[in-house]
Design a protein around this nucleic acid. Structure first.
Lengths: 336, 336
DNA sequence: GGTGTAAGGTTAATCGATTGATATTGGACG
DNA sequence: CGTCCAATATCAATCGATTAACCTTACACC
């Protein structure tokens, strides 16, 4: 590998001068600058990020941990964060924790060891803040939580209004006369899964509909558990007349179950998360759309402000609105 | 931050000894080891990857560049690669190039500067090998291409059999009597887009069906271009009786166009890429399934072998089979 | 001509870990 | 009791960049 020393020798200057040219933070005469730049081009020199980072303890990179790269919601958030960060000259590295706390921790450590300047974290399930995260504050590396948070962890967070989103969804089903509404929740260690369940309960309460425990099934936010729990709920008698599924992947599994049981057109359905293909499903699927792009962009912006020191003080929590998109699956129109 | 020196002082030993304990590559007496480990735990010490990497020029990390994180195919490949690499003790960092050559290059550089031990690359469009990649070989850092390759670039590559996959798809449509088959290709700078088009042409030729240029539309492998080009093709008269769409995202756009024009049930459809929701679309969508997981896993395995030096010699190219999955959209069953 | 000052360069310490060379210690053995 | 060896531990150079402190010109101005 070609180093700063090689450039210095070839251009007949000191390494300090090369560094000044590269970083443009010190006056260098035009002739010298040209000579150095030519050598850099000739030798195809690129500074060693490790050496630089070791010296400056700053890397112009940001690490992001997401729980499931195959869940389309998260890539959408990543895209947004990336847009904002690239624009500001930062490189975003993504790690997929696979919903495992251990993997989340190992990515966290890997990122810290790479000395990322900031962290974006969509957490995996745990009711309490893992120790390494509560210890994190002392490091001075800003961290912004997205979509989920650990109760008691005081970091900035950008969240969707899960409670209200799911309240509206269930309220909508109640509006259409449904009284036996099944719900497939996410894993209840996750705060957003709990909030979505809470929205469901609140909506029922508001209409004085009794909560039936057997209509509440806990999934794992993946296709398989959506399928399994849908089979369970649909095997009840009397059957629920409507289902509220707490994320997009589980809705996919649920649809598989419903189509196997030939119930697709008999049961109303609303999904949390709006996936691109919902309009083309039969029937088209009603959904609570989350502002995925805005979540990512807002989080990245906050992170940048923290990194640059333009924002200080106690952690802030931003709550973004969801939108209920009504399609055929909740209207019964498909029963024509 | 706590450094190796802090540990050394607290444990009353030299930094060298601490290093030996951490890396387990040198005998250390039990008592000393215990003392050191305790200090490490007490102070919550984690080695600085930059310092270590600077010294050893090795990082136990792998970088992966994908063109579009919102296209479900790529996350599936990432998942596979990650499984294999994590298992071998490596951390995988992902960068999203957004189909832009400049971003691809900047991720490439960022990864190189972070001194990743290997690279997995799903390239963005260019007919020839970018200079930085042809220069890459001299660096000794192994690189494996996935899904696409640049002609003339000699690196290992793991690919799906695009030609044959699309041949089978089009052949299947011909089987069902279609003679006016529209195709929406990917961007033709991409080798796989060209191969899929070639498969289409070859299938037509084999049945002596004349190629009509106006039935060939070039998309960009994204939803929007799928929508646009579908509108164009469906506006032709006479209309094509079938469409072959060269990736999953464009199929989503195409379905939107078809549903706007109320043609969903009138036009046969086959998609390259099988997305999870295709069975639930109306009609369910026939597709050429790519072995996404196998692609990622195979590539990661080759990379590991190259890193460890267990595999040497000239680049190898692996071709994995695709599978045609026939559903309603290509059968006309939905016209009942 | 002497002096002050700004511009342009260089020297060398430093970041935190690794590792080859070297020192120390305590037996074993003749 | 010396000598030698193995087992452990330490010393100090090193990786490649950054940057504070310092040096050298050149020129302006009195």
């Amino acid at each position: 590998m070609v180093t700063i020393r090689d450039i210095a020798i070839r251009a007949g200057v000191s390494t300090a001068t090369v560094s000044h040219v590269v970083n443009q933070n010190y006056p260098v005469s035009v002739q010298v600058r040209e000579r150095v730049l030519r050598s850099i081009r000739d030798l195809n020199y690129h500074p060693n990020a490790m050496a630089r980072g070791l010296r400056t303890s700053r890397s112009k990179t940001v690490g992001m941990v997401i729980p499931d790269i195959t869940n389309p919601f998260f890539p959408a958030v990543v895209r947004a964060a990336e847009d904002v960060l690239n624009h500001a000259g930062y490189t975003l590295f993504v790690g997929n924790s696979d919903n495992a706390l251990t993997k989340q921790e190992s990515y966290y450590r890997a990122f810290r060891e790479q000395r990322v300047d900031g962290l974006l974290l969509i957490t995996s399930g745990s009711r309490s803040t893992p120790e390494y995260l509560s210890n994190h504050q002392s490091t001075g590396v800003p961290i912004v939580l997205i979509d989920r948070y650990y109760p008691g962890m005081d970091a900035d967070a950008v969240l969707a209004d899960n409670l209200r989103g799911s309240y509206e969804a269930v309220d909508h089903l109640l509006d259409h006369g449904h009284r036996r509404i099944g719900i497939i929740t996410g894993p209840l260690q996750l705060i957003n899964a709990r909030l979505r369940l809470a929205g469901y309960k609140k909506a029922l309460e508001a209409r004085r509909v009794a909560l039936k425990e057997d209509l509440v099934a806990e999934g794992r936010f993946d296709i398989e558990s959506g399928y399994q729990q849908a089979r369970n709920l649909l095997a009840l008698s009397p059957r629920p007349t409507a289902l509220f599924i707490c994320n997009g992947l589980m809705t996919e599994g649920c649809l598989r179950a419903m189509s196997e049981l030939r119930l697709v057109h008999k049961i109303a359905l609303v999904s949390f998360d709006d996936l691109g293909w919902f309009p083309f499903a039969k029937p088209s699927v009603s959904a609570v759309a989350q502002p995925a792009y805005d979540l990512g962009a807002a989080a990245a912006n906050i992170l940048l402000k923290r990194i640059s020191g333009k924002m200080t003080g106690p952690p802030r929590r931003r709550l973004l609105k969801t939108t209920l998109i009504v399609r055929d699956s909740s209207l019964g129109l498909h029963r024509r």
